[in-house]
């Protein structure tokens, strides 16, 4: 019996995470940080939300503003719609992140030149827009045309990288709840982003966080907005489907 059990354990698929239900990184934060995230007035990420709101209402090149179409406080935007990003875009023939959607809107409806990925102005706008959907469960549909991007993001997540030769999967699936030095490993979800980071004292985009992860593993990061990071974003969001959007989350 013992032997059968052991054999069964040995046959488990290696890529299976050690968890079944996604749990937000929030649950792993010390109480003061949770309180800071929850309190609108204490949360330093709210400055970025405000800056984003100002940009949202500012007229663009042709005099239009985001607010002109979507309401002064973004009240015309659908929370559920925001939670569905990245979505498949026929125009792009691939995934469209919320970040890109905002850039597209600026270009098409405000006649602005598109900004490069993760430019501060876009991060502020994204933080403002995603904050509108705070509490809404992440709901990315990867059963249809986004499936190939989900799959390649998943492959990237399981690829060993850098001098340390580890993958995201090692820390965030396999060793969750165990300690790396003084840090309890969480499941590495994306629902807090853009998030305010105490270490840098600023808001970090999800792709910025990816670059940090690569640096930690002493690996050469991909560019923000690269195909690779967009695929990783598709995978990560879908992997955390059901978690409430926390933007702006507070993280170390």
């Amino acid at each position: 019996m013992r032997r059968v059990l052991l054999a069964a354990i040995a046959l488990l698929p290696l890529a299976a995470p050690a968890w079944e239900q996604p749990v937000s990184g929030y649950a792993y934060l010390p109480e003061q940080m949770q309180a800071m995230q929850d309190d609108e007035f204490e949360n330093p990420g709210m400055y970025t939300v405000e800056d984003g709101g100002t940009l949202f209402r500012a007229p663009g090149y042709n005099g239009n503003s985001c607010a002109g179409c979507h309401g002064d406080n973004g009240s015309g935007l659908d929370r559920k719609g925001i939670a569905r990003y990245p979505v498949y875009s026929t125009r792009h023939g691939g995934p469209l992140t919320l970040h890109q959607r905002i850039n597209d809107c600026r270009e098409q409806h405000l006649d602005e030149f598109p900004l490069t990925y993760d430019e501060p102005e876009l991060i502020k706008l994204e933080t403002f827009v995603r904050h509108l959907a705070r509490g809404e469960p992440v709901n990315v549909d990867v059963s249809g045309p986004l499936k190939p991007w989900y799959d390649s993001g998943k492959a990237l997540y399981h690829t060993r990288i850098g001098q340390l030769d580890m993958s995201c999967h090692h820390c965030h699936d396999r060793y969750v709840d165990l300690k790396l030095r003084d840090q309890v490993l969480n499941q590495g979800h994306s629902n807090a982003f853009p998030a305010h980071r105490l270490l840098t004292g600023g808001v970090s985009s999800l792709h910025g966080k990816f670059r940090d992860c690569y640096a930690t593993l002493r690996a050469l990061p991909y560019e923000v907005g690269s195909e690779e990071f967009i695929a990783l974003e598709v995978y990560l969001h879908a992997r955390g489907n059901g978690l409430p959007i926390e933007t702006p989350g507070i993280r170390r």
Binding site: T159, R160, I161, G162, Q163, L164, D165, M166, H170, C171, R174, Y175, Y214, A215, R218, A219, L220
Partner: peptide, 17 residues
């Protein structure tokens, strides 16, 4: 998960330069 502390660096994937 344990890193290889003395492995042929030519075998790393995307090492930072």
């Amino acid at each position: 998960i344990m890193p290889a502390f003395y492995r042929d660096p030519a075998r790393y994937h995307r090492p930072h330069p």
